[in-house]
């Protein structure tokens, strides 16, 4: 099949960007969306043009590197999948597809479709951990954890840190990302000692990075490749209130 691609091109962070239009022939249903872009890039190079810069690594939906807005939807149409798990069988001959980077104040564009998501790392550095050094830890079975509790923690821990939640939100809020990490650690007994300081530090860093507030439109959950539930945002709010005003 043949598709028309309207792709965001931008030389660097300082430059002004704009859409460029390309026609891509010989697209087959079994191709992944990124393989289709690989093929486009090969053709561009053969013509002596600059290929489209986009990021990806594992190409199986777990590393969180790929970050395209396809036809207006972060990671494209389809539920519970990253951009690399999007296949061309979702499109039909003659379709026009727009391809943009994740857009948010906290994610400055570096080039074309590549954005800087280091703000997420700084949020984790502010408190997204349990402070244990290597060695001297108790036997792993010394601390029983209810299966339901562990499963819920795992639901939150499944976050791949891609930033689709931010890109999907009209406020560019990072609440789902922060909620996932805060919930994962506060649900487990190991996370209790730092429970209050952790949430305060992470939220403070989130605000400092310029992410917006949550107004409960739930676009984040719809875009999340791991389908992380917005219920964790409610949990984040509870954790934050508890740490701010509750019993210390």
């Amino acid at each position: 099949m043949r598709v028309t691609l309207k792709i965001w091109r931008q030389k660097n962070a300082a430059a002004t960007g704009g859409f460029a239009t390309y026609t891509k022939d010989n697209v087959v249903a079994e191709m992944s969306f990124l393989e289709m872009l690989d093929a486009l890039n090969r053709e561009l190079v053969e013509k002596g043009e600059e290929p489209v810069a986009f990021e990806s690594d594992c190409r199986e939906g777990i590393c969180g590197t790929c970050s395209l807005v396809v036809s207006g939807i972060p990671h494209g149409p389809g539920k519970g999948a990253a951009t690399c798990q999007l296949y061309m069988r979702r499109f039909k001959d003659g379709d026009t597809i727009t391809v943009e980077p994740f857009r948010a104040r906290g994610f400055p564009i570096l080039r074309d479709l590549i954005v800087d998501r280091s703000a997420f790392d700084r949020i984790i550095q502010a408190g997204g951990f349990i402070s244990v050094n290597t060695g001297g830890t108790p036997d792993a079975n010394a601390l029983p954890i209810a299966k339901e509790q562990q499963e819920l923690a795992m639901d939150a821990a499944a976050c791949i840190g891609c930033g689709a939640c931010v890109a999907a939100c009209k406020n560019a809020s990072a609440m789902l990302f922060v909620a996932a990490k805060v919930s994962h650690l506060s649900l487990l007994p190991q996370g209790q000692p730092e429970r209050q300081q952790r949430v305060l530090n992470m939220v403070a860093q989130m605000d400092k990075e310029g992410f917006g507030a949550c107004t409960n439109t739930f676009e984040c959950e719809a875009a999340c490749p791991k389908e992380i539930s917005v219920r964790f945002i409610a949990r984040l709010n509870r954790e934050y209130m508890r740490a701010s005003w509750g019993d210390k």
Partner: peptide, 18 residues
């Protein structure tokens, strides 16, 4: 032991053990 202390959510049985 190290990973559990860090909060790695390994699968568990109903009794709470790994």
């Amino acid at each position: 032991d190290q990973c559990v202390a860090q909060g790695v959510p390994f699968a568990r049985e109903y009794g709470g053990l790994l």
